[in-house]
Design a protein around this nucleic acid. Structure first.
Lengths: 221, 221
DNA sequence: GTGTAATTTCACGTATTTTTCACGATTTTT
DNA sequence: AAAAATCGTGAAAAATACGTGAAATTACAC
């Protein structure tokens, strides 16, 4: 479990990190909302522990921004006495919240509850979200700005493979071998044609599929 | 696992070396911060055990200096009673700390925790860092002071090959054979032109590519 | 079988990349 | 000190890779 801890106070982060790692999870840290949003755009986390009060970009705004791009469970941390707007929090998709100062037991219990809930949900349909591009591998669905993209079988396979290997350079040979199969003895340029079709179907999100001249392609944010 | 032990006391170094080697790791030693920084510039270590109090250059300053160039996990060693500034340590990127006197169990547990954490992180995207030059071979990205350098295919290949063989003298013939391919029957000086282009793109880090007159080139820090 | 959708091949145009080569600067050898 | 070798560089020529559209082939449902 990869858990992102967002708080401007180092000591709080360290305490949370200890709880998180004690339970066998990986902890990542961000000092403010800005940084958290940036990290979420580039990486996938299973849970976010987000402080409400932070410099640059507050917790609410950060969550709102993150939820636009990725569907991650969030637990908000608020100091006692801080005005905590439950209704608003619920609207932007906060899963739970704890008030500082918190006990280890309390935090761990909530983390476990949320992650368990989420893994149960994810086993059914894990939907990856890259800006307005949503990819549901299990359900074999791709949505571009909310509308379903009608892809051909090869296009699905190709896209899913690229996404599973996002950030990694893939040669045409490797793509042919892994997506088409080891027994494909055809033209390299077949890949290009499918990339073309795929890009056409992804509309503006064609930008995620970058050409690596002299090599092949990769999926990158 | 190559582990660098930095402490001015011989006895401490010996004890740590025993722990480290008992777990099947390679131990290296430095007597002070200066020496540690120098060794890190020239070699790659998987972990550094760094004492806080040392002559010439203290542990904090040494870590700060090392982190500028390489991303290595660090465990700080501090004597009980010594004022240990956790906040500062965290800021400069210290992964963990133990207070002397320490038990073998404690040290080993922390070493294992940190190395495990770090290898897990690296498996995703191994990004090499040489001062302000970052190289992500898997993602085919090169960053010069944070900004992406747009290299041509041959420039990527050449740079990656040089880096993979860093510190080793490479003749034009070897470069042509390994980077261009065994079936290249062209001019030797082709290499020079590509080195020129590469240097231009690496800006100030052109210095890493050194010319070996009468021989060829090599990548060196 | 037939028709439709999907896949693959291929050729063209364009933009980029690679290579060659010659000149001048620098270093080494005679 | 002159001659020879080596290297950095710029520019031009040659080669290559990619996007695209269209045609050919294959797969599959009915």
């Amino acid at each position: 479990m990869k858990i992102l801890i967002v708080d401007d106070e180092v000591m709080i982060r360290n305490v949370l990190r200890e709880y998180v790692e004690f339970e066998g999870n990986e902890a990542y840290e961000a000092e403010d909302g800005m940084q958290a949003v940036k990290m979420c755009r580039e990486n996938d986390y299973d849970l976010i522990l987000m402080d409400v009060m932070m410099p640059y970009l507050d917790g609410y705004s950060a969550v709102k921004e993150i939820k636009k791009v990725k569907d991650v469970p969030v637990i908000m941390l608020s100091a006692r006495g801080e005005e905590y707007d439950k209704l608003f929090a619920f609207e932007i998709g906060v899963d739970d919240y704890v008030t500082k100062p918190f006990s280890p037991k309390e935090v761990m219990a909530r983390i476990n509850a949320v992650t368990k809930r989420h893994t149960a949900k994810e086993q059914k349909n894990e939907i990856l979200k890259f800006e307005g591009l949503e990819i549901d591998m299990a359900g074999r669905n791709v949505y571009v700005d909310g509308v379903k993209a009608e892809l051909t079988p090869k296009e699905y396979e190709l896209l899913f493979y690229l996404v599973r290997n996002k950030g990694i350079a893939l040669t045409r040979e490797k793509l042919l071998y892994d997506v088409w199969g080891f027994d494909f003895y055809g033209d390299d340029r077949t890949v290009d044609t499918h990339i073309k079709m795929l890009r056409g179907n992804l509309k503006e999100y064609r930008k995620f599929i970058v050409t690596l001249r002299g090599l092949g392609y990769k999926f990158e944010l």
